[in-house]
Simulated scan of single mutants.
Amino acid sequence: MSDTVRTWRHIQQRYNLIGTKCTTCGELFFPSRVVCPNCRRKGNLEPFQFSGKGKIHTFSVIRSAPDNFKKSAPYAVAVVELEEGAKLTSQLVDCDVEDIEIGRIREDGEDGVISYGYKFKVIK
């Protein structure tokens, strides 16, 4: 799938953190699913917008980056646990990688435009 097609196909979930919620069991999923793995065909999924707030579950600092990201190194990639419970992998931005701690992030804020991936800012 080309990058352009992939970008447009996933634009809702990328820019709005839209996943799904099973109305049968209450489980939340991100990214969206078409079938609830718990309820299977008895499940009923509906769109669900996540808040974008959460905490850093774990992270890694990339110091030796691949060619496309060499100008950004060092940078941090984290598993972010959203307040609603879903976890996603994200780049952490606008922070000193030495100051990152597990448990602290905030939503993308006034100037935040998510571009081709999920990014979170660290709270100090």
Rank of each mutant, 00 (worst) to 15 (best):
L45T: 06
F59E: 07
I11Y: 08
G85N: 03
K42H: 11
I11N: 09
R41P: 00
A86G: 04
C22Y: 04
G43Q: 08
S60A: 15
N16G: 14
A73T: 02
V61S: 06
E101W: 00
L45E: 03
I62L: 06
D96P: 02
K21P: 06
C36H: 04
Q91N: 13
D67R: 15
D99C: 06
D99P: 00
K42A: 12
F30I: 08
A73F: 01
L88D: 01
K55V: 10
E81V: 07
I102D: 05
N38T: 14
V80I: 15
G52F: 05
V80C: 04
A73P: 03
P47G: 03
D67P: 14
P31Y: 10
T89F: 14
V35S: 09
K71G: 00
A76T: 08
T58Q: 15
K55F: 04
T89Y: 09
T23V: 13
V77D: 00
T20E: 07
G85M: 04
V80F: 03
L28K: 11
D67I: 14
F59T: 07
K87S: 08
I18A: 07
C95W: 01
E83Y: 02
K21T: 06
C95Y: 03
I62R: 02
A78R: 06
G52L: 09
S90E: 02
L17R: 05
R41C: 08
R40I: 11
L45W: 03
L28D: 05
R33L: 15
S51R: 10
K70W: 00
Y15H: 11
V97R: 08
I56E: 10
L82W: 09
E27G: 00
T24M: 07
Q13P: 06
N16I: 00
G19E: 06
F50E: 08
R41W: 07
N68C: 07
A65S: 01
S60G: 11
P37K: 06
I11A: 10
I11T: 05
E81C: 07
F48M: 05
E101F: 04
K70L: 01
S90F: 04
C95Q: 03
Q12A: 12
G54T: 11
F30E: 05
T89R: 12
L17W: 13
A65Q: 01
C39S: 07
G85R: 02
S32M: 11
S60R: 05
D99Y: 00
K70S: 01
K70V: 00
F59D: 09
Q91E: 14
T89L: 15
K53S: 14
E83K: 10
D67M: 13
K55W: 04
V35L: 15
Q49C: 02
K87V: 01
C22P: 03
A65T: 01
N16E: 13
R63S: 14
V61A: 09
P37C: 05
S51D: 12
E83G: 07
G43T: 05
T24R: 12
F59M: 08
Q12R: 14
T89S: 15
Q12C: 05
N44Y: 08
G19T: 06
I100M: 11
V79S: 09
P66M: 02
L28W: 05
T23H: 11
K55H: 11
V79G: 02
I100Y: 08
